[in-house]
Design a protein around this nucleic acid. Structure first.
Length: 331
DNA sequence: AAGTCTGTCAACCGCAAAGTA
DNA sequence: GTACTTTGCGGTTGACAGACT
């Protein structure tokens, strides 16, 4: 039978988006909320594929996206999360709230992979992830494999610990303002050091101004896409929804941690308050309104992370093998 | 100055999972 | 339970800009 094309190939426009198209898309999303992408081209008159609209929004137009140079903490997180999770960029991106999976993927492919390859001339693939790659021609003995795995887990913990420490929350802008999304331009001002937005961000920000005060129609909440597009924020705020994507990410990481450390349901999932106060009441209301009510599942990732990181303190330095030093020299 | 090479990044494509009737 | 639709993800491509010759 075959899959029907998602869009009429004759009509859809391809290539770079124009500012006008951006404005149309943002205006529409401002009014209706993200989601129901199928209807977007029809309702907006955009000659774009629904997928293209979703991608444009997710990777470029949605609020809170940070562009420009990656910080050292971000680099470390990417490297170690990639080692732990593989090329699951969406999952990795969920722990880098301001970065898109596409950005991370590009950064990995164009820079980090090469850099690691350069710094690890001995390893074939170059990336830390390839330590676990069974396809490596030289099989690593089980004991050594486990040892290196533990080492890298330790390094990942360290990187995450640093990256997630309140003082270094990835240069995330001050969120004490009454409205998280109200004026993205102000983000620039509150954190001039690291935030470099897309050229169109200011314009789009103006369009989005007041969006949070006029949240999208409830009707749009039929689709969970609103959740996924805000997923990274939700993650950061510790109120990640149980949306399909969020849930997937949560479960994925939970499973990873559980499998690695034998964590079970005795975990205290309620201790995520560290992250939530920074979210404005309006934003919190919005997210809660727009997301499914189940937050206990949603809180798993960061609670796990917290426990994981706290647990890190107990790890004896003697557990750190020489290969830690090898990896440490990477930075 | 002109041509070529290289790196970056936005966008596309195809597949698979999730959702729905 | 099945067929179909929609959405999300990861790999890949291609346009562009800057560096280099």
């Amino acid at each position: 039978m075959g899959r029907p094309p998602c869009c009429d190939k004759e009509v859809v426009k391809k290539g770079p988006w124009t500012p006008e198209e951006d404005i149309i898309l943002v205006s529409y999303i401002q009014e209706h909320g993200p989601g129901n992408w199928r209807a977007v081209p029809t309702n907006t008159g955009l000659s774009r594929c629904s997928k293209s609209c979703r991608l444009r929004w997710a990777n470029y137009l949605r609020p809170g996206i940070k562009r420009g140079n990656f910080t050292e903490q971000e680099e470390k997180m990417i490297i170690h999360l990639q080692a732990l999770l593989g090329n699951r960029w969406a999952a990795i991106a969920s722990y880098l709230p301001q970065r898109t999976d596409n950005d991370i993927k590009n950064y990995w492919n164009t820079y980090l992979k090469k850099r690691l390859k350069k710094l690890e001339p001995g390893s074939e693939g170059g990336s830390l992830g390839n330590v676990y790659n069974s396809s490596t021609s030289k099989p690593i003995p089980r004991g050594q494999w486990e040892r290196r795995l533990q080492t890298d887990i330790h390094m990942a913990k360290k990187a995450l610990s640093e990256a997630l420490s309140p003082n270094k929350i990835l240069s995330l802008p001050e969120q004490n303002d009454s409205n998280l999304y109200n004026d993205i331009g102000s983000i620039k001002q509150t954190n001039p050091n690291s935030v470099c937005y897309a050229s169109s961000a200011d314009n789009i920000a103006r369009l989005l101004k007041g969006w949070m005060k006029n949240p999208p129609n409830k009707a749009s909440s039929k689709s969970n896409s609103i959740v996924s597009t805000q997923n990274s924020f939700n993650n950061f705020a510790g109120i990640e929804s149980a949306s399909s994507e969020g849930k997937t990410n949560s479960v994925d990481l939970s499973e990873t941690f559980e499998s690695l450390f034998g964590y079970n349901d005795s975990l205290d999932y309620s201790s995520n308050s560290e992250f939530s106060p920074s979210l404005s009441p309006e934003a919190s209301t919005f997210f809660q309104d727009e997301t499914k009510p189940s937050t206990s599942i949603a809180e798993i990732p960061f609670s796990l992370l917290e426990k994981w990181l706290l647990d890190d303190i107990k790890i004896s330095c003697s557990d750190v093998t020489s290969s830690v030093d090898d990896h440490a020299t990477l930075f």
